[in-house]
Each structure stands twice: as structure tokens, then as C-alpha cells.
Design a protein around this nucleic acid. Structure first.
Length: 583
RNA sequence: CGGGACAUAGCGCAGUUUGGUAGCGCACCUGCCUUGGGAGCAGGGGGUCGCAGGUUCGAAUCCUGCUGUCCCGACCA
């Protein structure tokens, strides 16, 4: 491709709307343009990157006998009503009506429609397992689209659905996808980590892993262990209880603590360390109130609590409810003598006390006394309070022991680019996707679903590979491998040499761009760095006299001199070697 | 959905306080010149100042309403 004809409108300045680096660079380097909030046009360079990523995904899906299909984006409301998600999915579902007033949705995900196809066409155990996938646009009307391609309302996703006879079959399919995903992100040249994750609203019976591209700009917090393989999203990460020394229980006493509300204030006021305190957080759920207890120096993990209580709604109770429950101002709640129920606006609401495992092992703890400006000292589990449930409900933090091997946990930020789910029979049951087994007995198919954010992976690759001059594409997903730059477009000798090398590269199967624009060299170099071509070949007067050209490798920032006649061959070898290295 | 900010040429911005009919840099077009890290000179094209009302002789500027965009939070297969 000739740069003079390539639609890659680079910008000298960063558009004000772009905050994260991938958004800034993809706009500046002329890869994308915004059409509406969270909706982007992919220009030629982006299209090529997306195709490279998609091709890698396709190869690895096909390798595991995944079969590619295309499912409709416009989906009838009836299917969504059948699964129950028409009402549950909420405002995030893009809805539309046709001219007859019939309801449709733009697919945010495709469990319904794939299950519909399979229930109609697959009836025998002989046809299973079945792995079907597509690479397509997905639509989610995000409350707040942001970070450019990272969280859009229209985005490209690969989704594969597995259908198996039983849980054992599902485990096999799951493993296949897990391994395929690891190969895919490796081949894309990304530093990533599969982590244990929370299943969220999608539910399901088995485990789920998220594939995280490690980057500081990531939205997800993960903890991992270098000594063993343990890695998890903090939403899910197990926290190992640290048990303090047992002391002789002293007599319960209340102590005046005027206007001392926070753990820190209390620690300095009483001279007691936070790990000897019990923090009490009151939550309101559709199943009543929950008083959650964690050690003073710990943080509650709301997702663990929500899963434990099995609620849809979980929000911190408002001040008024806390006052009614404890009979005290906010900041003085505690488990001792906490009422079993409370009357809020004429409604009787039950209260459940749930304690983190560590809490019941604190001897002579300090807690709120449910009396304004008072706390209790010497609170002991069993004698002074008895939780309804004891479980791991706190947030795991870096530095604490790994739940598997006790080495110190580390933390990192990650961008979720893929997730694998064991769905079980949730959708096959709702939509009636059954098959007959060897005994002629009808059974529900056991499903899994596996997503990769293709457009997000492109953005994640930029987040992980850039410098102050621009993008540094991994060779395997770079839009082009090489840019050939004659320093002067008016120097016939340089132009001729450049054209020759460009042609040779193309003949060798190397994807090359010839920067034939009548620009000063600085402009061409800046654009090359910004766009992120892995290799730049520069033909200039200094070296041409010796029949040599410069080869600049973007990743290493190093320049070497090569003979004109062999440079194409050499660069082709380098490119092939790089790609092979990744797969 | 709560809080905050912004909206003037493709991009970055000034002009708004104090109303007088729109400007700068980059980009774009023509010519000259130049060619090793976003050159220089000369000429040129491009904007119903987000939209709709209102005040006024006159509105980018003041008032009202709306829309869009971004950030923080809540939310999120």
C-alpha cells in the first residue's frame, strides 16, 4: 500500500475527549473515529488489526472443532421473554420496534438465539458435543460508555457456545476453550493472566475464568501468587483468615467515645489497633437487612456478601434505617444486643448478622455499642454475640498469604479481554433444549459460553504496547509489518531503491507500506512511530552511497544497516521469526 | 441514575466577564523553496459559534428550555 493513498488521518494533537492512552493513540494514529458515544468507525488500519486478531481467534476455535456461524443481531423479543431476560436485562438492552410495532432487541449476547437454533436442530446425544461460534457486533446500551474502545455500546466479540451431554462433557469443552484462549492471547503478543472470577448475574453451575491483559489502566483488580498458579479477580479472591492470639475473655464494658465514628479515630482515641475492632456495616437487600462484620483493618467484599445472601439488590442502608435499627447515630453500630428485626415505615424487616471468619476469633474486641457516642470493649464471640452465618466476606489484599500456598499475594490491574463460563442448564432449561440419550431418555443440554472482546483486545494491546512516540504493535497483529521510507521523495535514486525494496517485500509476502508522500522526513518518521509499524526501512543519502539502508525495529528502538539487495529477505525472515515465536 | 465540566472550521484553542456581526495555531488547496525527527515564504478554501425560543436597533456573548459530549461515582457476562 502506498501511504499517499492510505486513509490513516493522523492528528498532531490529542482530541480533548480521549482520556485513556489507547483511545488517544488510536484516534491520533488514524485508526478510529467516533460516530456517537461508545460507537466507532474502524478505519483501514484498525480493520487490518481486527482482522489479524479475528483470524487468530478463528484458527484456534477451528482447531478445537468450533464451527463458525453468523447469528442475527436483530432478535425477536419473544425469545428474550422466554428466557426471562426481556425484563431482567433492563436498560442495557437496545430495544426497537418494527413497522408493525413488534418488539426486537439488538443482541448484547446470543444465548437465547443459539439455544433456539440448537433446540430445533439437535435432538440426539450422537450430535454432541457441539461447539458453535461467531465473531460479530454486540450491542449494549451502557449507562456510561467510556475509555474509547474499552467500553463501547457497539463492539466486536467472539462468542462460542458449547453443548454437552453432561457435566463431564462440559468440563472437557471448558478446558478446550481455556487452552485455546491462552494460545490466542499468547499469539497476539499480550501479557495476560487467566484469573478465577465471579460469575455475576449470568449465574451458572461451574467455575468461570477471566482472561486479563495486565495493564495499569485496567478496570479490574486482580491478585496473584508467584509461588503457585493462583490468580483471581479480587471480586472472587479467597481471603485466608488470619487468627489472632486467644486471650482470656474480660468483662464486657461500655466506654464513652464522643463523636468518634471511624475506625481510625477510634484506634487513636482508645489506643487499640484496628485488628482488634469489629466493623459493622448495615446493608439493605430485598431479603431484609444484613449486618456484616469484618475486622477493623479489613474491607468488606460486597460481591461475596451478595452471593452468600443470594440477593439481587445489595446497598448500604440509609442513615435513617441504621438509626432505627441501632437506636444510635451512624458510626456506633455493633453486633452486641442488635435487634433481630426492625420496623421501618410500618414494615417489619428482619436482620441477619453475617460475620467474616476472622471476626469470631478476635478476643476482647471493640465494637459500636448501638448507643450514640459509646463503644463496647472486651466483646467476645459466643458470649456477647452470635452471628447467623460465618463466612469469608472480606476483600483479599496484596501482601497477605496466598489461599493455596501461603506465599505473599501480589496485585495488578487487568483489562478483561475474555471470559469462559460454565452455564450448566440455565438456558437449555428455560428454552427447552433437550436431547435423547442412549436410553431414549430426554435430558437437558449442558452449556458453556466463551467470549472474547475482539475490539477491546485491540485497545488492550495498545494499552500494553506504547511509548511517548506512539503505538508499538506486536508483529502478529500489526496492521502492516513494514513501512519503507525514502528520506526525500524528490531524489530519484532513493525513490527507486525504496520502490524496489517495497516490491521485493510484497513478493515475499511481507505486508508493507511505501511512504511515497512528498513530506519532509520528520513527518514520515513521526507518523511511522505513531502508527506503530514494527519495522521501518529508511533509504537516505548517507547510506545509499554504500548501497545500504537502515532497518529500525520499533520494539527495540534499534537501527541496523543492511545491504539494499538483501534487506527484503532479511526483514521477511525477521517478521516470520517474530510471528513464529508467538505461536 | 447522582455530582461536575464542556459545546466556536477536520483537530487544539482564543473571543463570552463589559452585546456591535468571528479569530489564532495545526491540518487542507495553489505556487516557490526545502528534504535525516511534525521546515519557511506568498496566496487561498472552509464556521447558520450544538439546537430552539426570548431580551435587544443589534446576540458566539445576556435569559430560558432542550440536546450532545467528557470526567467522578453508582452500575456492568
Amino acid at each position: 500500500m502506498k501511504a499517499s493513498q492510505l486513509l490513516s488521518p493522523t492528528l498532531r494533537e490529542t482530541p480533548a475527549e480521549a482520556e485513556v492512552i489507547s483511545h488517544q493513540l488510536l484516534l491520533r494514529a488514524g485508526f478510529i473515529r467516533k460516530s456517537a458515544a461508545g460507537v466507532y468507525t474502524y478505519l483501514p488500519l484498525a480493520q487490518r488489526v481486527l482482522k489479524k486478531i479475528s483470524d487468530i481467534v478463528r484458527q484456534e476455535m477451528d482447531r478445537e472443532d468450533g464451527q463458525e456461524i453468523t447469528l442475527p443481531i436483530i432478535q425477536p423479543a419473544e425469545l428474550w421473554q422466554e428466557s426471562g431476560r426481556w425484563n431482567v436485562y433492563g436498560d442495557e438492552l437496545f430495544r426497537l420496534k418494527d413497522r408493525h410495532g413488534r418488539d426486537f432487541a439488538l443482541g448484547p449476547t446470543h444465548e437465547e438465539i443459539i439455544t433456539d437454533i440448537v433446540r430445533g436442530e439437535v435432538h440426539s446425544y450422537k450430535q454432541l458435543p457441539l461447539l458453535l461460534y461467531q465473531i460479530a457486533n454486540k450491542y449494549r446500551d451502557e449507562r456510561r460508555p467510556r475509555f474509547g474502545l474499552m467500553r463501547g455500546r457497539e463492539f466486536i466479540m467472539k462468542d462460542l457456545y458449547s453443548f454437552d451431554r453432561d457435566e463431564e462433557g462440559l468440563a472437557v469443552s471448558y478446558k478446550k476453550m481455556y487452552d485455546a484462549y491462552s494460545r490466542i492471547f499468547t499469539r497476539c503478543g499480550l501479557k495476560f493472566r487467566p484469573v478465577e472470577a465471579d460469575a455475576g448475574a449470568i449465574g451458572g453451575t461451574g467455575g468461570t475464568h477471566e482472561f486479563m491483559v495486565i495493564a495499569d489502566s485496567g478496570e479490574a483488580d486482580i491478585v496473584y501468587c508467584d509461588a503457585c498458579d493462583y490468580a483471581a479477580n479480587v471480586e472472587k479472591a479467597e481471603a485466608k483468615a488470619s487468627i489472632g492470639a486467644k486471650e482470656t475473655a474480660l468483662e464486657l464494658e461500655d466506654v464513652s467515645t464522643p463523636a468518634v465514628k471511624t475506625i481510625d479515630e477510634l484506634a487513636s482515641f482508645l489506643g487499640v489497633s484496628p485488628e482488634k475492632m469489629i466493623k459493622t456495616l448495615v446493608y439493605r437487600t430485598e431479603k431484609g437487612l444484613v449486618a456484616a462484620l469484618v475486622r477493623g483493618d479489613r474491607q468488606l467484599n460486597e460481591i461475596k456478601l451478595q452471593n452468600l445472601v443470594d440477593t439481587v439488590q445489595l446497598h448500604l442502608a440509609d442513615d435513617e434505617t441504621v438509626r432505627l435499627l441501632t437506636g444510635a447515630a451512624v458510626g456506633f453500630a455493633g453486633p452486641v444486643y442488635l435487634p433481630k428485626s426492625v420496623c421501618v415505615q410500618g414494615e417489619e424487616i428482619t436482620v441477619k448478622i453475617i460475620a467474616d471468619e476472622e471476626v469470631i476469633h478476635i478476643s476482647n474486641a471493640v465494637t459500636g455499642a448501638n448507643k450514640t457516642d459509646f463503644h463496647f470493649r472486651n466483646v467476645n464471640h459466643g458470649r456477647d454475640f452470635t452471628p447467623d452465618q460465618v463466612a469469608d466476606i472480606r476483600l483479599a489484599e496484596p501482601g497477605e498469604p496466598c489461599p493455596r500456598c501461603d506465599a505473599a499475594l501480589k496485585s495488578a490491574r487487568g483489562i478483561e479481554v475474555g471470559q469462559v463460563f460454565k452455564l450448566g442448564t440455565k438456558y437449555s432449561k428455560a428454552l427447552g433444549a433437550n436431547f435423547l440419550d442412549e436410553n431414549g431418555k430426554s435430558r437437558e443440554m449442558v452449556m458453556g459460553c466463551y467470549g472474547i472482546g475482539v475490539s477491546r483486545t485491540m485497545a488492550a494491546a495498545v494499552e500494553q504496547n506504547y511509548d511517548e512516540n506512539g503505538i508499538i504493535w506486536p508483529v502478529s497483529i500489526a496492521p502492516y509489518h513494514v513501512v519503507v521510507v525514502p528520506v526525500s521523495s524528490k531524489d530519484e535514486e532513493q525513490v527507486k531503491a525504496a520502490e524496489k525494496i517495497y516490491q521485493e517485500l510484497k513478493d515475499l509476502g511481507v505486508e508493507a507500506v511505501l511512504d511515497d508522500r512528498n513530506e519532509r522526513p520528520g513527518v514520515k518518521f513521526k507518523d511511522a512511530d505513531l502508527i506503530g509499524y514494527p519495522v521501518r526501512i529508511t533509504i537516505g543519502p548517507k547510506t545509499l552511497a554504500e548501497n545500504k539502508v537502515e532497518v529500525f525495529v520499533r520494539q527495540q528502538g534499534q537501527t541496523t544497516l543492511e545491504a539494499i539487495d538483501s534487506v527484503a529477505q532479511g526483514v521477511a525472515g525477521l517478521i516470520n521469526q517474530e510471528v513464529a515465536c508467538l505461536s
